[in-house]
Amino acid sequence: MDVFVCAGCGAVLSAPVVRVALPVQVRQRFGHEMLPPLVEAGTYAVDPAPSGPPWRAWEDVGEVEAAARGVFAPQVALSYGARGRIVVAPGDSRGTVLIPERCDGYCLGLDGRAGPNLACERCGLAVAARVDDCSLWQAVWFEPDAVRRVPTARTAPPVTTGARPPIEPGGGWSPQWEAAAGAALAHLLVASRGEPVALPDGLAGAMFARASAALLPSGPAVRSVGLAGPGLPASSVDIALVPRHPRTGEPWQPGGGTVAVPLESSVWAYLALPGETSPLPVSGTLPEGVLRDDYPLPAHPWRVFRPDRHVFLDALARLPEVRLPWLRSLYDRVSADRFRSPVW
C-alpha cells in the first residue's frame, strides 16, 4: 500500500491506499443530487489522460493536436491539465486546508473549476482539488507534481470483485451501470464493424438493445455477442463482454479470435455470476441446488435502461477507430442530440 506526501515539505496527505483501476464513471455527471465517492475508501486511481483546468475549445486546438492528446473526435473543450492526477476518497485525505478563493462550485459544493482548492496544512503548497458538488462523484484529486507516492510496509488486501446490483435502493437505475454500459457500448460498436449483432438473452442484452437498434442497421445479425470471462464455460461468440481487472483495468482476453469488449468488473460479475441473491434472512440451510421462491417483487425503475450518453461519447472519442467514416457519423449524430431526446 502507498501513502501520498507533500512534494514541498513531506507532510503525509493520505491514509494508506492501494491502487485500483480508474472507474469508468470518472467523467460522468449524474442527476441533481449528492453522489458517493468516486473510488472506495482505502483505494486510489490514476487518470492517464489530461484532466481538470485549464480548458481549450476544440476550435482552438484542431484535430492533429487533439489526437496527440488522445482525443480523436470533436468535444466542446479539451483539458490541458496534468496527466496522471491521483484520486482518493475524500475521507482518505489528510493534512489539508481549503484555499478560500478557489472554492468555486455550481450548486451544493465544490467542483474544482479553478484548479487545486486544497493546500498542505504544513507548508501551504496547493496540492489537490476537492470535488463534492451535486451531480459529481466526490473525490480529492492530487496534482501529480505536488505530491509524492511513498510505499508502505502494509500488505494490500486481496482483489475482490463484488456484484453491483443494477437498481439502487431508491428504485432507480444505478449510475455505475449506466456509465459501464456507455463505455462498453463504444467498444461494442467498434467490434460490430457497423453491422447488426445478435445480443445475448436477459439483462446483458437489454443493456445494449435500444442503443444497438438505434445505431446499427437492421437485418440478420452478422456477429454474435455474449459473456465470457473467468468462471464461465468457453463460448464461441464473435464479440465477448469481458471484465476489466479491478486493479489494472485491463480486459480479460477470451482468445480464439473473439473480440473483447471490456465491462466494469462489478457489473460483469452481476451478469455472469449472480448466485443466490435473496435479500430475506433464512434459518438453517436449504438442500443442495434448491433456491428460495419467496423473493419480494423485483424493483421496476420508472424509465427504461439507457447507457450513459456522455460516457459513451467520451469513450468513443478516445478510440482511434472513431475516425472511420461510419463510426464518426454515429458519433456526430449522438453528439448533436445532447439538447434533444436521446437517440436510444
Rank of each mutant, 00 (worst) to 15 (best):
F4I: 05
G8A: 12
C9F: 04
A11Y: 04
A11D: 13
A15K: 09
V26G: 01
V26M: 06
A41Q: 08
G42A: 08
A45S: 11
V46E: 03
A57R: 15
V61R: 02
V61P: 04
A73L: 03
P74C: 09
Y80E: 14
V88T: 03
V97C: 03
V97R: 15
G112A: 14
L118W: 01
C120Q: 08
R122H: 14
R122N: 12
V127F: 07
A128D: 04
C134W: 11
L136K: 02
V147D: 08
R148V: 12
R149D: 00
V150P: 02
P151G: 06
P157S: 02
P166W: 07
G171D: 08
G171P: 07
G172V: 09
A181R: 07
L188H: 10
A191T: 02
L199K: 02
L203A: 15
A204N: 03
S212A: 15
A214V: 01
A214C: 08
A214S: 15
G226D: 15
A234S: 13
P243T: 02
G255P: 04
G257Y: 03
V267S: 02
A269N: 05
L271G: 01
A272C: 06
G275F: 05
S278Q: 09
L280P: 00
P281I: 01
G289E: 09
L291D: 12
D293C: 11
P296A: 11
W302T: 14
P307Y: 03
D308L: 00
V311Q: 00
R318V: 06
L324A: 15
P325K: 10
R328G: 15
V334M: 06
V334E: 05
A336D: 14
R338N: 09
S341F: 12
